[in-house]
Nucleic acid binder design. Sequence first.
DNA 1: CGCAAAGTTGAGGGATATCAACGAGTGTGG
DNA 2: CCACACTCGTTGATATCCCTCAACTTTGCG
Lengths: 250, 250
Amino acid sequence: MQQMRALQEAQAEAPPPSGAASLSLADLAALLKIGLDEVGTEPGAGVTLRRVQQGMALYRAGDPFGPIYAIRSGTFKTVLLDANGSYQVLGFPMAGDVLGLDGIEAQQYRTEAVALEDSEVAIIPFPRIAHLSGKAGKLQQFVYRLLSRQLTREHMQIWLLGSLGAESRVAAFLLILGERYARLGYSDTRFNLRMTRLDLVSFLGLTQETVSRALSRFGETGVIQVHNRELKITDIEKLHQIVANARHSG
Amino acid sequence: MQQMRALQEAQAEAPPPSGAASLSLADLAALLKIGLDEVGTEPGAGVTLRRVQQGMALYRAGDPFGPIYAIRSGTFKTVLLDANGSYQVLGFPMAGDVLGLDGIEAQQYRTEAVALEDSEVAIIPFPRIAHLSGKAGKLQQFVYRLLSRQLTREHMQIWLLGSLGAESRVAAFLLILGERYARLGYSDTRFNLRMTRLDLVSFLGLTQETVSRALSRFGETGVIQVHNRELKITDIEKLHQIVANARHSG
DNA sequence: CGCAAAGTTGAGGGATATCAACGAGTGTGG
DNA sequence: CCACACTCGTTGATATCCCTCAACTTTGCG
């Protein structure tokens, strides 16, 4: 057990000693384990560092989007905060991981990053990187936002699987699907489930029978009408209530 | 019910009629709901289209990474295929969504995209976009890979929450954490849980008691040794077996 | 019409959440 | 140094949810 404690202290040390408060681009590439040839030739492209005390947030949900951060030492947790105040931990990034990518799309961070121990991050001025060139730059910003958007969507899925019970999951799925149809110009209360129950079931992390029963019960209580894959939401407010009845700590 | 069927057919139509087999950049921006000023002035920057029949895969896990795809009409499912053959549906992308982003990092697609109905996608030559500019481009490729890497990681989390039982989740978490420590140069069998049980519990989608019991049982069966947050894996092979005992259809 | 596939419904049991009590670690003040 | 309170984590008993198994109904298709 004392050996463990010794190991622990070893882990707390900063990986390669470097007292300077800035990092070369090559160092950054090595930290992030990404091959980055022909970059060491750049002039004064240094990256500044920032310390974060245990328990402190590097950024919070809703903060205007600024830089992204590469963790140089320490551990964080990233948390998705529900409107109700409930939260879902999305991950525990450590040295070599990157924080803040989810903020690109909406230009504000959607999650919160809190240090689990005293940590050190490299500040990467993302806006400067992305806004660089003209024509090509526009295209690239484009793709950045697509990636960021995708990240945000998968956060929602983790939240759905991590903190909702069976009926809440089904209800949330229907609501989200409706919203997506609405964004495409269709009705958000009348649409068609294009996937088989098997696919739906895998997506929701449930069994076929449980999903079927949830839909049946929704039908009985007058929340929806289903016929095969055709679906109509008749009481969207009650659906929201069912989602709010999360499983554990709401 | 017949009204529903009528609606259904309406949805099957392509959003804005455009018989050509290519799309302008501005069209693409509109499709993806992303503001893209000053791009309509580009010369011949057209994007070609591709049709995908129902049930056909746009790409499969392991395929070498090529273009990314913007869905113009139709619906897909994206599937994460476990080594054992089990699968986890990650989402149901529709018009305006993008496919293939997870392939950037490893230069091969990690998931599979299957059309749930006859669909049409715009082919975006991602490599050409990313490799465009010289010096600055290097930096940008950098960030692309970070985003893609993050996507892949969250896919794992969705898989963990969607298809594993309680003990399997805890076991998988320990193994993954060990691998991450190993990548940083530390032991993959002796490390420290830096997060509180509360955070861990939210991350795993379980309750505190269930996680505690799982760890206790692992201790009893000689798979690990725990003392507070200090942890030692003594039988890594058995941990893998526990993960393999997934919940429903393996 | 008949078969296969998909979806529904019911009964039962197992896994996990909930409730409750206890033990261990930590910080504070006497 | 010890008592106390407080948080964190563990253990046990019970309730509940959801999975499993099985039978049935419906849909789709040749």
